[in-house]
Amino acid sequence: MSIQHFRVALIPFFAAFCLPVFAHPETLVKVKDAEDQLGARVGYIELDLNSGKILESFRPEERFPMMSTFKVLLCGAVLSRVDAGQEQLGRRIHYSQNDLVEYSPVTEKHLTDGMTVRELCSAAITMSDNTAANLLLTTIGGPKELTAFLHNMGDHVTRLDRWEPELNEAIPNDERDTTMPAAMATTLRKLLTGELLTLASRQQLIDWMEADKVAGPLLRSALPAGWFIADKSGAGERGSRGIIAALGPDGKPSRIVVIYTTGSQATMDERNRQIAEIGASLIKHW
């Protein structure tokens, strides 16, 4: 067993022997301040990774656009098919120029040779490549099948209805392509620590998230040296922004954090800054 596999296998073990965790309302004060600064709703939840206990939450059962955070769930569904012998990570998928959609920095470079399922998941999570996500959605049967996968996990809230990039439209009061912070946090925890996926697939999923290259201005910008984070960000229309993450000190994750916002007129930089400040408060009061 590799060191990384050992780390993920012992996530519940280490967490069980940690000192009790206590909620700190100071972080919620910052979440509410972010709402004021952005002029928009902000949803927040913080779960203990081992027990699933909610440590703090704000608007945990209000719907927010998922945006690209759905790509972690998508690759979880792909990995479940791999575990069941219905898919192979090494299978190569070929596609054409007509398949390319807006923001496809990886797939646009491989029109000639195609990409493997493993490479597509890596591109979808680490670079948020939209064509990679659409190609992977095709392998599982489309958005409705991802929703069905989530329902089978016990998540009857999260739903995907459309493809990239239309799913980022974020129309107010439109339930399409949305989740709730509580539902997303619980589902992410199941994917990373539950028995739904094999140990190898859980490790692969967290490795992809740990290698995320496009979430630097968010929670990662607030992390002290030595902290662990595996995350996936999302951005959408109407001032929408979000991030889902597993993080913790001492090089291992111990909490799940989900943050979503929508309806702001603020710039992307300002949305990023507010999420980073929430992260800084979380870490300060850990």
Rank of each mutant, 00 (worst) to 15 (best):
G234A: 14
S128D: 15
R81P: 06
V214I: 01
P249M: 03
R41I: 14
L89Q: 06
A246Y: 10
Q203E: 04
R202K: 06
W227V: 06
D129P: 02
E56K: 08
D231F: 10
S104Q: 02
M67E: 11
R92L: 13
A185H: 08
M180I: 14
P60V: 02
L160V: 00
K190E: 11
P249A: 12
E35W: 09
D231S: 14
I93R: 00
R63N: 14
T138K: 15
N173C: 12
S201P: 04
G39Q: 09
I243G: 10
Y260S: 14
A200V: 06
T179M: 15
R238H: 01
P249I: 09
A215T: 01
T131E: 11
I229M: 13
F149Q: 07
A84G: 05
L73C: 01
L191K: 10
I256C: 13
L282Q: 12
S264N: 01
D33M: 10
V42I: 15
G234K: 12
A182H: 08
V78F: 06
P249D: 08
D48H: 12
T107K: 01
T69W: 06
H24I: 09
E26T: 13
F64G: 04
A235F: 12
C121L: 03
P60F: 04
P25E: 00
M66R: 02
M180C: 15
G52M: 12
G239E: 01
E270Q: 14
K53Y: 02
G194V: 03
E270K: 15
A276H: 14
R92T: 14
A225H: 09
P105S: 06
M66V: 10
K71L: 15
G234I: 06
T139W: 02
I45Y: 12
D36Q: 11
H24Q: 08
Q88R: 08
A132H: 00
E277F: 06
I259W: 01
P105W: 03
S68Y: 02
R59K: 04
A148T: 07
I259K: 14
G239T: 00
K190T: 15
S122N: 10
A40K: 03
E277H: 10
G239R: 06
A245E: 12
D177W: 14
Y103T: 07
T262S: 08
L120V: 06
A40E: 10
H285G: 01
E175H: 04
W227A: 08
P249S: 09
A132N: 07
A133Q: 03
R255Q: 08
D113P: 03
L205C: 08
M127S: 12
I93K: 02
R92G: 13
G239M: 00
I45N: 03
I275F: 15
I171H: 00
T147E: 04
T267A: 10
A200Y: 07
A230K: 07
E237H: 01
N50M: 12
K71A: 15
T27F: 13
I45W: 10
S51W: 01
D174A: 07
K144S: 02
I206N: 12
G141N: 00
G242T: 02
V29L: 13
A124G: 03
H110M: 01
K252F: 15
P143F: 06
E108M: 05
I125A: 09
M115R: 06
K53V: 10
T147M: 06
V42T: 08
L120S: 04
T187C: 07
G154L: 04
G234T: 11
Q37C: 05
A245H: 13
T126V: 11
G216I: 12
H24C: 12
L192V: 01
A133T: 00
D174G: 07
I256W: 10
M115Y: 06
P105E: 05
T131A: 10
I244P: 09
S51I: 04
P25M: 03
K109T: 07
A200R: 06
A183Q: 06
M184T: 12
V157H: 14
P165I: 01
M66L: 10
R273D: 09
P253H: 12
Q204D: 02
A40Y: 03
M115Q: 03
A200D: 06
A182I: 03
P65M: 07
S221R: 12
G242P: 07
M115N: 04
G52V: 09
T112D: 04
V157N: 06
K190L: 15
P165T: 00
G216H: 13
P217Y: 12
L150H: 03
Q204T: 12
L111E: 08
L247D: 05
N168C: 09
R220G: 14
D269I: 13
I45V: 12
K232T: 14
K53T: 10
T158P: 12
N98F: 12
E145Y: 15
A280N: 03
A246C: 08
Q265C: 03
R41W: 14
P253M: 06
R81H: 08
D250M: 11
L73R: 01
V42R: 08
R176G: 02
L219A: 12
N152W: 09
G43M: 06
R63H: 04
N168I: 05
L219Q: 07
L192G: 13
A34C: 10
L135Q: 04
L28Y: 03
G52S: 13
D177C: 04
S221I: 15
L197K: 00
S233V: 15
N50F: 08
Y103H: 10
E237G: 00
R255V: 09
P105H: 02
L137I: 06
A133C: 01
M209D: 07
C75R: 00
G251I: 08
T116W: 04
L146Q: 05
R255A: 07
A200Q: 05
G90V: 02
D174Y: 05
G141Y: 04
G90N: 05
S128F: 04
D33N: 13
Q97D: 00
R271I: 13
L247I: 11
A182C: 08
L136S: 04
Y95I: 11
A230W: 13
D99Q: 13
A148M: 15
I125Q: 04
Q86H: 11
G90K: 05
L205D: 05
D174S: 01
L79C: 01
A34F: 15
L73V: 06
F149K: 08
C121Q: 00
A222G: 15
A215D: 14
S240E: 03
L38N: 04
S264Q: 00
S96N: 10
K32E: 06
E210C: 12
P224C: 11
T187E: 08
Y44H: 02
W163N: 15
D269K: 15
D269W: 10
W208I: 10
L205A: 04
G141K: 03
T186F: 01
A133F: 01
M209P: 05
T107W: 13
A222V: 14
R162M: 00
P172H: 04
W227F: 11
G216L: 13
R220Q: 14
